[in-house]
């Protein structure tokens, strides 16, 4: 069953076609990876999905619903969470606050209730906190609860970003280069977590990744892009063997 479908989507910046008529679909419970050389339009596709960019043409469907026109802040509420290539955490807040922002799409209380901090708000806060603690447990982040993000090392921040996305209890998580800037050990951890996200939490993963070892280890299917166009798609080994993909990477 298709959870998420991209149907002939294009994105044009002036004369440059960043994404050119790309179509693919992600099944429920799958780990789907988009690969491609730099500037192939991978992150642009993510930005289209999280509605930061408006597509020039084409449509996006999530759980059979057309989400091409949904405003960006509602995407999270639908059940799509994401991370960023160059970490976009809230630097001057604690990790706990960051993760609680991840719960924002589940906020039920009104502002006037919060001003008075009515019992309902307190109850909701405790529920959010319980959910956040589950994620902290899942990703082993216990040591950093009250630490400011600004003082944490890169590898930890990368994990916290995944944690923040998980806090919104998504059905589909978009990971933008989860291993970039991580050392070999951290990349290993990341690959285990990605698989756990799928198997333990039942969340479908769509990711952009350069590290082919990681891609081979976790992905069910791979889509290769170059210059905004689809080169090939299929299992990791199929795609890697595809002549166009080899040409794109080796410049033949």
């Amino acid at each position: 069953m298709n959870l998420f479908t991209v149907d002939g989507i294009s994105l044009q910046f002036g004369g440059l076609k960043a994404v050119d008529n790309v179509s693919f679909s992600v099944s429920k419970g799958e780990i789907f990876t988009i690969i491609g050389p730099n500037g192939a339009g991978k992150t642009s596709i993510f930005n289209l999905i999280s509605r930061l960019y408006d597509p020039t043409s084409g449509k996006l469907f999530f759980e059979g619903r057309d989400i091409t026109e949904v405003p960006p802040h509602q995407v999270a509420r639908l059940g799509i969470a994401r991370t960023f290539q160059n970490i976009e955490l809230f630097e001057n807040a604690t990790m706990l606050a960051n993760l609680l922002v991840g719960r924002h799409c589940h906020a039920t209380t009104q502002m006037w209730q919060e001003m008075l901090f009515l019992p309902s708000v307190r109850r909701a806060e405790k529920d959010h906190r319980r959910k956040v603690e589950e994620v902290i447990e899942f990703l082993d982040l216990q040591a950093y609860r009250d630490k400011l993000i600004a003082g944490l090392p890169y590898g930890v921040r990368k994990v916290i970003e995944v944690a923040r996305a998980l806090c919104s209890e998504p059905k589909l998580i978009l990971l933008d280069e989860p291993s970039s800037g991580l050392n070999v050990e951290e990349t290993d951890d990341m690959s285990f977590w990605i698989r756990d996200i799928r198997s333990e939490l039942g969340i479908t993963v769509l990711m952009v990744e350069h590290d082919m070892t990681l891609v081979n280890r976790v992905s069910d299917r791979v889509l290769a892009l170059n210059y905004g166009k689809v080169l090939a798609s299929g299992t990791p080994s199929e795609v890697q063997a595809h002549p166009d993909v080899i040409a794109a990477y080796l410049g033949a």
Binding site: Q74, A81, R82, F84, A97
Partner: peptide, 21 residues
Amino acid sequence: SPTGRAFVAIRDSETAGKSMG
């Protein structure tokens, strides 16, 4: 409460805030 955290989120990263809902 959520509103205050949303304020801080806007201060630190509008893009991330947007995609967190």
